[in-house]
Computed example of a mutant assay.
Amino acid sequence: MKKFVVLYIAPQSAQEQMQESTPEAAQEGMKAWMEWAGRAGDGLVDMGKPLGAGREITATGTSDATNGVAGYALVQAEDLEAAQALFDGHPHLMMPGATIQVYESLDLPGM
């Protein structure tokens, strides 16, 4: 099995989404996420969490991160296509402008 890092991209931060959501909508959203987690089964290694404000660090300084990463997860699958299939019907994609990025985690030689 290969490991994959998943980034949830959204036009609105996770903090803003949670602040604007009613308790009922938040409960329905969590229900949809838990149903997806059940479908993903053993492919889901770590459901991850929403991400708050971040900083971008460069050789010349730091600034507020503005890349739209709203959360992360870790999954495992035989290959990238199988990892991608885990996200069919994912509730994150119901948000307008939302995307999911899946990256294979490569082993470092000698480690």
Rank of each mutant, 00 (worst) to 15 (best):
H90K: 13
E104H: 03
E104I: 03
A70W: 01
A65L: 12
A37F: 08
A70K: 01
E20V: 06
S21V: 03
D88Y: 04
S21Q: 09
S13D: 07
E35I: 13
M94V: 11
V5Q: 05
D107S: 11
Q12D: 05
L51I: 15
K3F: 02
W36R: 08
V5S: 09
D107L: 10
G110H: 03
G52M: 07
A53F: 03
L74C: 08
Y103H: 14
A40C: 05
F87C: 10
P109W: 00
Q84N: 07
T66E: 11
Q17W: 11
L80G: 06
E24I: 07
K49P: 01
M18H: 07
G43Y: 02
G48P: 09
A70I: 02
Q17S: 14
G71E: 04
L93G: 15
A85H: 07
Q101N: 07
L108D: 04
V102K: 00
P50I: 12
M30L: 15
L86M: 09
G89E: 06
K49D: 13
Y72M: 13
G43T: 04
P109G: 12
A73V: 11
A65P: 02
G48A: 10
Q12P: 03
Y103V: 09
T99R: 04
V45M: 08
L106V: 11
K49Y: 03
Y72E: 00
V5K: 01
L74Y: 01
Y8Q: 04
P23Q: 06
S13C: 07
K3L: 11
A59R: 10
D42K: 11
R55H: 04
S63T: 14
G54F: 00
D88T: 15
Q76G: 11
D107V: 09
G52L: 07
E104W: 00
E35G: 11
D64Q: 08
L80E: 05
D107Q: 12
E16P: 04
T62S: 14
E56N: 12
Q17G: 15
A32Y: 01
V45Y: 01
P109V: 08
Y72W: 10
L86R: 03
H90Q: 12
G38H: 07
T66N: 06
A37C: 12
G29E: 08
G89A: 10
P50E: 13
L7D: 04
I57G: 07
E24H: 03
G38I: 08
A53T: 14
E78S: 15
L80F: 03
P96E: 08
K49E: 09
L93A: 13
W33K: 06
A98K: 04
A26H: 08
E24V: 06
D107R: 01
L51S: 05
V6R: 01
E35M: 11
A98I: 07
R55A: 14
Q12E: 15
M18V: 15
N67T: 10
G71W: 01
Q101D: 14
L93F: 06
G48H: 03
H92K: 09
T22R: 00
R55S: 12
